[in-house]
Amino acid sequence: MSHESLEATVDPAKVDAWIAELGSEPSAAVPLLQAIQTEYGYLPRPAMEMVIKNTQINASQLFGVATFYAQFRMNPVGRNMIKVCHGTACHVQGADRINTSLNHALGITDEEEDTAPNGSYTVEDVACIGCCSLAPLMIIGDQTFGNLKGSDAQRHLKKHAREHNEVLPGHAEQEKQKKKNKPGQQTAKA
């Protein structure tokens, strides 16, 4: 599934400003890519091309670096980011279930895909963020949630979605299905 609507429009003046601030020598490659990604959430092609044109960094170095480090991504992201920690402590305490649970709610069914079909959320697996005593944990936007069960992850996601006027495609679909299958039946209180 592609998310063309999520492609960012690159402001050339901004890219120029970053080059002026961070330098144009080869050692500026990582900081420049970090500046671009911080702004757009990923590395838009036009921004990369500007860097290649206006600095001493050539295409092979820039793309080499961009594809080497885990921080950089080449595809657009959803309107909100969710980071799921996969450090050792989180792994042994069920981090995988958080992904299963979030993907379920977001309607992400393809293993290669990390963004909800409606572009609302992107779920990213990250290496250890160093809060191992709160494992397993995830970050939605800038809020961290620890000691999670899969069901807690969904609860926090739903709350976040309500507060940010986002629709969770997976859940909407599921609720619809439920109503169709069992008219009038109530689910027991959680």
């Binding site: 996969h86 450090g87 402590a89 792994h91 250890c128 160093g130 191992c132």
Partner: peptide, 11 residues
């Protein structure tokens, strides 16, 4: 560059 998953001393 504390990359060890499960380590947070340097942090």
């Amino acid at each position: 560059d504390e990359g060890d998953p499960g380590a947070f001393m340097d942090r």
